[in-house]
Amino acid sequence: MLLNQFLLLSAVLFCLGVYGVLARKNGMLVLMSVELILNAVNINLVAFGAFRADVGGSVFALFTIAVAAAEVGIGLAIVLLMYRNRRSIDLTQADLLKG
């Protein structure tokens, strides 16, 4: 199998994830898109690990999974807090930074 088939699949997933993060206005959907990005990264890590016959790729993929779990936990907590404060999780309304 070619290395590139995994890498390109990962690139497609990554870009779809980026699209989702940028285009979605529902906070939950943005979090899901972030998961897509993280998974794309994992495929990359494992593919390079297999390519180099090094177990490090798998180890770091596992670390990424752990970090992703933490990220979802915190992200959902923030979304919940936002919902409680604004009765909405529409990110386009969260524009306090507006200049």
């Binding site: 980026v18 993060v21 940028l22 285009a23 206005k25 943005v30 990110l91 386009t92 969260a94 524009d95 306090l96 930074l97 507006k98 200049g99």
Partner: peptide, 18 residues
Amino acid sequence: ELRHINTGRVQNYAAIMF
């Protein structure tokens, strides 16, 4: 004029960054 860039929406900033 300049404040149009500063929409306050994180996603716009992220788009510019990406």
